[in-house]
Design a protein around this nucleic acid. Structure first.
Length: 760
RNA sequence: GGACGGCUGGCUCAGCUGGUUAGAGCAUCUCGUUUACACCGAGAAGGUCACAGGUUCGAGUCCUGUGCCGUCCACCA
């Protein structure tokens, strides 16, 4: 036994940083360098292999899901690199639209400032700086898992180089007639004063009211009939939001409803407003709920908006962005909060004898994810994309097998999504993002007004609104402000693009767009790996936009990861306090142990509850590798080092089995079956290499003198088996295997770094 | 309401195109060893593969139905 300078246990914490640095220094995460390396060593250079990494938010810490997700990217990347492919793992960081806007606004608030204090330009600049600072943090966190990405190509999603490409896509789509403006109900948070995407809202059960209000019929004859039938001279509607009645433009009943059949097409008088509105037939109304008759407010309810569109109803706005009553309503209600208005209205209705009753109910309301304020649905004009033709093409890619989804079940879900594709609203009312490159001469309002009033002019607009406008309402696409004519002012669109519009272009924008050298070399990419829950938001869009801009699907395989749940199977969340940080796991068990656990427990698309005992079990295995290696090296006498280094291994039963094992693992990796691969390397190294072969060889050399042929033969064989196992295990558990490799290098039993070795 | 998935030993899950006594890790139990590793070794116990039908010489694996659970989307006047 020779004392080797190896501690009894593998100390992941102290070694990981140093090893990562070794890889960084090699420069081989850059595929151009890797190609050169392979050429210099006379290896057969295979096709490039590219994975564009999903960018984590630049605004905060990474969670376990991010970090573990990267272990999938990395295992593939390392394996491909070790089998002759110049590999590009392209990292980035996301500006994360609304989320960062909210995080950064909160930060400002803590400093006693607000968004509006700074103004749009300053806010943007400061937020940019904030993200740049934070990015370093995110980068360090993702590197701890051992991610062998090419940081010389790292991108931030708001990088001007990317924005240029995103703008170009928009211009082309506009020219191709795919872009249009349309009204839509948006989720307005009256507190945050911003529009929210559906995903930024939550649902919560709150106490509310259900008010029964009588809308009297316009004509005497109907009133009489109603009196006979219902005991009142009108139709009774039930509503949870009485205040929206000021914007009602119809009453809907189910055409099958015997109670109301004969009133369809008749008018009722909207109380307070004294406006006649029709009773319409609408199949979707539920006869059992309330009275079976419902007031329709297209401006302030998504479903009413749809019904309104179908029946060509007027849209009357009565609530503004601050959640206050406004518009064409009696003066006494203007400026009231919706709740106050509701109370005031109910009181007046009661006086008029038109309020039947108020029930107290509990119902689900949409609330703002951040401030928990109930959402105010309001009408607004938005930018839309007709993506139907692109969805058709994307569907063909899936059906022809050009793009595959793993697990296969999710492929069906994606096909379903494309088959039922809806127009894509690409505008957001935020400051943080890529401002839409559209300029209006005069004002956006004028532009929209002219669009809606064909044949009318700017003069008509000014007459109707009483506003003076400097410009003619023309629209122009441009990155920069157009040159103004005399008396004209150009104003840029204030909306920004939906984050997904730019991240949907991520695989080609990060390669510099169609003309760039990198694009030629590395596009289309081979693999896209991300969490299952954003399949429709992200991959679905990347395929469509990739096809549009490059004519090719941006990747051939989508590999979906599940979520890491807390040990009881529930979602990890900050609010519940059951979250475990990646740092805690790294510090306790090391990156390799976490990786190996994730490979075996987190199958594509399914969630994995985090179980520390299992990570601990894998940590034990990592240590086993370290100790087996240590033992082998301790057995080689210093005098034998040189001879063993030169030793040519002859075929034995063990080396044969070893080769078969490596083939099997390669096979799993080729098929992206990481769970089976991880299980296999663990099982084989522990129970065959350690428990059997090392024990056998211990016996076989027991009585042999130093430097004897038998010792050299047996230890040489063992060393060969160790080295081959280190190689095949390296993609899964890069740190410990590289650490051992460096011990071999130290003793001149190996050369270079393990990351660059080729698996034969 | 729509789409998709899951239901296999105490727990978390494997099990490819159907084929001999259904596997792993963790937990449990017994024994051993402390001179590579107690972050160790040897061994054991534990499952009528959700339920009901069907196809088949043969089904955890294919088909139909039922139940329960999960995820995403939509809706909640």
């Amino acid at each position: 036994m020779t004392e080797r300078n190896m501690p009894k246990a593998f100390d992941s914490q102290s070694r990981e940083k140093e090893i990562f640095h070794l890889w960084e220094k090699s420069g081989l995460t850059n595929p151009d360098n890797m190609r050169k390396y392979l050429e210099d060593k006379n290896y057969d250079v295979k096709s490039t292999y590219t994975i564009t990494l999903p960018p984590p938010n630049a605004n905060g810490d990474l969670h376990l899901g991010h970090v573990c997700g990267y272990s999938f990217h990395d295992v593939i990347g390392r394996y491909k690199r070790m089998t002759g492919h110049p590999v590009l793992l392209l990292p980035g960081k996301d500006h994360a639209g609304i989320q960062t806007e909210s995080v950064f606004s909160k930060k400002l608030e803590e400093e006693g400032l607000s968004k509006t204090d700074l103004g749009r330009d300053k806010f943007y600049k400061e937020a940019y700086k904030f993200c740049m600072d934070n990015m370093k943090n995110a980068r360090i966190q993702e590197q701890r898992i051992g991610l062998s990405a090419d940081y010389s190509r790292e991108f931030f999603t708001l990088d001007p180089r990317l924005t240029r490409i995103v703008y170009e896509t928009f211009y082309r789509m506009y020219m191709d007639g795919m872009v249009y403006r349309d009204k839509r109900i948006i989720n307005q948070c009256p507190h945050c004063m911003t529009a929210l995407a559906d995903v930024d809202t939550e649902h919560e059960e709150r106490r509310g009211i259900f008010a029964y209000i009588i809308y009297p019929f316009e004509k005497e004859v109907d009133r009489k009939l109603a009196k006979k039938k219902f005991g009142v001279e009108g139709i009774t509607v039930a509503t949870t939001r009485p205040e929206t009645m000021l914007g009602d433009t119809a009453v809907a009943v189910n055409p099958k409803d015997e109670r109301y059949k004969e009133f369809i097409g008749k008018n009722v008088i909207l109380p307070i407003m004294d406006r006649p509105i029709p009773v319409i037939a609408e199949e979707s109304t539920e006869m059992e709920m309330g009275t079976g008759a419902f007031k329709i407010t297209p401006a302030h309810s998504p479903i009413d908006f749809e019904i309104g569109k179908k029946h060509k109803l007027d849209v009357i706005n009565v609530i503004n962005e601050q959640g206050l009553m406004s518009g064409d309503i009696p003066e006494r209600f203007k400026g009231l909060e919706t709740k106050e208005c509701s109370k005031a209205l109910c009181a007046e209705l009661a006086k008029l004898g038109l309020l039947v009753k108020i029930e107290n109910i509990k119902h689900d309301v949409s609330i703002c994810e951040r401030c928990k304020t109930p959402i105010e649905p309001i009408i607004s004009k938005q930018w839309y994309l007709n993506v139907e033709p692109l969805a058709k093409r994307a569907l063909e890619e899936l059906r022809s097998g050009n793009v595959k989804v793993m697990p296969a079940g999710q492929q069906k879900a994606l096909e379903h999504f494309y088959e039922n594709i809806q127009p894509w609203c690409i505008s957001r009312q935020l400051w943080w993002g890529q401002q839409i490159p559209v300029w209006y001469s005069g004002s956006k309002k004028l532009y929209d007004w002219l669009q809606e009033h064909p044949g009318m002019t700017k003069k008509d607009y000014e007459k109707e609104t009483g506003e003076k406008v400097r410009g003619n309402g023309e629209l122009r696409l441009s990155d920069t402000q157009p040159v103004a004519r005399r008396g004209e002012v150009w104003k840029q669109e204030t909306d920004v693009f939906d984050t997904w519009f730019s991240s949907g272009q991520w695989p080609f924008s990060t390669l510099g767009g169609e003309d760039a050298v990198d694009f030629q070399k590395y596009y289309p990419t081979q693999m896209m790996i991300h969490a299952r829950d954003i399949l429709f938001w992200w991959s679905a869009r990347m395929i469509m936009l990739g096809l549009y801009r490059t004519g090719k699907a941006p990747f051939s395989t989508i590999f979906l990861t599940g979520m890491i749940m807390s040990s009881d199977g529930s979602k990890m969340s900050k609010s519940k306090g059951n979250g475990i940080t990646p740092t805690a796991i790294f510090d306790k068990y090391g990156a390799d142990a976490l990786r190996l656990w994730y490979y075996s427990d987190a199958l594509p698309g399914s969630n994995a509850p985090l179980r520390e005992e299992k990570i601990k079990g894998n940590r034990n295995f990592i240590n086993k590798i370290w100790n087996a290696s240590r033992f082998i090296l301790m057995n080689i006498d210093n005098a034998e080092l040189e001879n063993i280094g030169e030793y040519r291994v002859t075929e034995t039963e063990r080396t044969k089995q070893n080769r078969e094992h490596i083939e099997a693992v390669k096979n799993y990796l080729e098929k992206y079956q990481f769970n089976l691969g991880a299980e296999k390397i663990r099982e084989f190294f522990w129970h065959t290499v350690c428990d059997k072969w090392i024990e056998e060889i211990k016996e076989e050399i027991k009585d042999e003198p130093n430097c004897s042929t038998v010792r050299l033969e047996k230890l040489g064989e063992l060393l060969y088996i160790l080295k081959e196992n280190l190689k095949i295990m390296h993609p899964f558990i890069p740190f410990v295997t590289e650490a051992v490799w460096q011990e071999l290098v130290e003793l001149k039993l190996a050369k270079g770094i393990l990351m660059e070795q080729q698996i034969q």
